[in-house]
Simulated assay, not measured.
Amino acid sequence: MGVSMRDVAAAASVSVGTVSNVLNAPEKVAPATVARVHAAIESLGFVRNDAARQLRAGRSRCVGLVVLDVGNPFFTDIARAAEREAGHHDLTVLLGTSDEDVLRESAYIDAFDQQRVFGLMVSPIGDDLERLDALRRRGTPVVLVDRDATGSPFDSVAVDDIAGGRLAAEHLCGLGRRRIAYVGGPTNLRQVTDRRRGAEEAIAQVPGAALEVIETPSLTVLAGREVGERLQRRKPGERPDAVFCANDLVAMGVLQAFTMMGGGVRVPEDIALIGYDDIDFARSAVVALSSVRQPTARIGATAVDLLLSAAADSPDGHTPANPVFQPELVARASTLGVREG
């Protein structure tokens, strides 16, 4: 049988209430007593029962984070930043990945709800947020991550993806490219449609420029490689002269197809290539990848801060905040044709 708080109290010659205060409010206890209780805890190997504490408090010290794809370094970096910020507030982040599957996303939301998490941060797949809204109304703070929820009852933190798409297309057009392909999907992801919209707006301002949309089933390297192989099989005059991918993983897949198949497509001489997110792998690719950078550290930390703010208010009395960060163009060899120094 495990060691109990009563055992610790007996070993330290204090009351059970004093042990509880040492664990939860040590400022209320004399330093010498705190030291004696901690010595007893270490000697006995006591581990407090957070599940029981959670039932008493009605809320745990764990925060749920559901992302679209934990294999994407963009979301990994957000999760890492969220963990750091949460740790400053005695919170632990529990991570789940929906894999862009609505049912899987719903299962994670239900699981975190059952665990009575302190709050929930979600990068949602679609626009049906009813399940999350029900959770919010019951008192569990919810923050949408990588999704602008301005005008809704949700707090959110996002990057202006329309502006990001515009940056990428303007960069390509500024280099003289006119036959541009946009590669990404599925289209039920808001990020995919917003980045395409920004590119469309920019290209509409350039005489002779046109945008071809190539949808992918997912935002993965394999999906990008398949598109790259298809483009390789086209006749040179039927290929785009630039490709804008909805994220860096897709762009790296396209680049792999161009460089591994030996089909004679040179980057950027024949086809300029730009991605989105500016993950670490982008700069170390065989041809350093141009990309649209998102501030992942700020996104993750801000999401936790918004969650804490919402937790301090009642659901009905809380005024949601919806910060939107601006993206940044990072031009490298895949569009410029020069190596970084």
Rank of each mutant, 00 (worst) to 15 (best):
R196K: 14
R196I: 08
R196Q: 15
R197N: 03
I203E: 11
A204V: 06
P207D: 15
P207C: 00
A209E: 07
E212A: 10
V213Y: 10
V213S: 02
E215P: 00
T216V: 11
T216K: 07
P217G: 09
T220R: 13
T220G: 04
L222T: 14
L222W: 05
G224P: 12
G224N: 04
R225F: 08
V227W: 02
E229G: 14
E229S: 13
R230K: 12
R230V: 04
L231A: 00
G237R: 07
G237P: 07
P240E: 06
P240F: 06
P240W: 03
D241R: 04
F244G: 05
N247E: 11
N247Q: 09
N247I: 12
V250I: 14
A251D: 04
G253N: 09
L255I: 12
L255K: 07
Q256E: 13
A257S: 08
G263C: 02
G263L: 02
G263R: 10
G263K: 00
R266A: 08
V267T: 09
V267P: 10
P268Q: 00
E269A: 09
I271G: 01
I274S: 01
G275E: 02
G275R: 00
Y276E: 10
A282S: 14
R283H: 06
R283I: 07
V286D: 02
A288T: 09
V292F: 10
